[in-house]
């Protein structure tokens, strides 16, 4: 190495490193700081670079969503057919048809100009429980239960946050006044949430032997919501693996070619 190469290289690495560091600081936005200790990282089958979803977990999570959360929260971006697609819960085609048929979908107008309801088909989107925001608020003491389709990407911590929130209900500290219709949950910004603890042990029946405890319900539904937010995660991880190998090999060849050409020159 020549004597003057190092400051430039240091500068390059230093700059790149510090920019990444600064960026890393930015992604932990300020409001997360107070709650960070409440949100613990869980082990998820999908979080590692080669991670994939756990089919059984997604199927159980769907059941929890359907039987509990769907009463208040929509998943407007999800279609029934998605439940059978690769990289998701992968319900069988017959099961998807049956699950879709449980929904009542508005359609029309028919030849008489009337709107009508029919049972759902796999190509239909999930039907939200309320017709609009105002109806949702009216039914929930003025609070709005948000659509959960991309919720797992809309909060710092993602599925870890969802799990922490769902398992985070506690008795309020003595000096805290919890508002009417509110519940104490230190994971939620402000500590008071207008959603009562939605999950209880044994409230949803599991048929695969998984213990019917709160923690499992919370974990399964959080994983399911991660899938609704990132349905292409498995495809992404798989393609990424092949792409990265290719890039590393290409980088190796380019480096050798560059070395050879520059060897013609004293430098």
């Amino acid at each position: 190495m020549r004597k003057f190469v190092s400051p430039a290289r240091n500068l390059a690495f230093g700059l790149a490193g510090t920019f990444l560091f600064a960026a890393a600081l930015v992604v932990a936005p300020p409001q997360a700081v107070g709650k960070a200790d409440q949100i613990k990282a869980q082990s998820w089958s999908f979080s590692a670079p080669f991670g994939m979803y756990d089919r059984g977990q997604l199927q159980r999570g769907y059941k929890v969503y359907k039987q509990v959360c769907a009463a208040c929260h929509g998943l407007r971006l999800v279609r029934f057919r998605n439940l059978g697609e690769p990289g998701g819960p992968e319900f069988s085609a017959a099961a998807v048809k049956a699950l879709a048929a449980e929904a009542e979908v508005q359609d029309g107008p028919n030849d008489d100009g009337e709107m009508f309801t029919r049972s759902g088909r796999p190509s239909d989107a999930f039907v939200s429980p309320f017709a609009n925001v105002n109806a949702a608020r009216a039914a929930n003491n003025g609070a709005y239960p948000p659509d959960l389709s991309v919720m797992a990407k809309a909060r710092v911590g993602g599925p870890d946050y969802l799990y922490a929130l769902l398992t985070g209900y506690k008795k309020a500290p003595g000096d805290m006044k919890v508002g009417e219709g509110m519940s104490y949950n230190p994971v939620f910004t402000g500590g008071q949430i207008a959603m009562a603890s939605p999950l209880d042990a044994d409230s949803v029946e599991y048929t695969d032997g998984t213990p019917q405890i709160l923690e499992n319900y919370a974990k399964d539904v959080s994983a399911f919501l991660m899938w609704t937010a990132e349905p292409k995660l498995e495809e992404r991880h798989k393609l990424g693996f092949r792409f990265m190998i290719y890039l590393f090999i290409l980088a190796g060849f380019l480096y050798m070619a560059k070395r050879r050409v520059w060897a013609r020159l004293k430098h």
């Binding site: 960026a23 936005p29 990407k153 991880h237 990424g240 990265m244 890039l247 380019l254 560059k258």
Partner: peptide, 26 residues
């Protein structure tokens, strides 16, 4: 080309493994 390839590794690393890391969840 060599430097670009290294930079693309960083880029595609974000795209495939942390696509929302640099964005705001809100």
């Amino acid at each position: 080309a060599y430097a670009l390839c290294l930079f693309v590794i960083l880029f595609m690393g974000f795209v495939f493994y942390a696509p929302n890391f640099l964005g705001d969840p809100v």
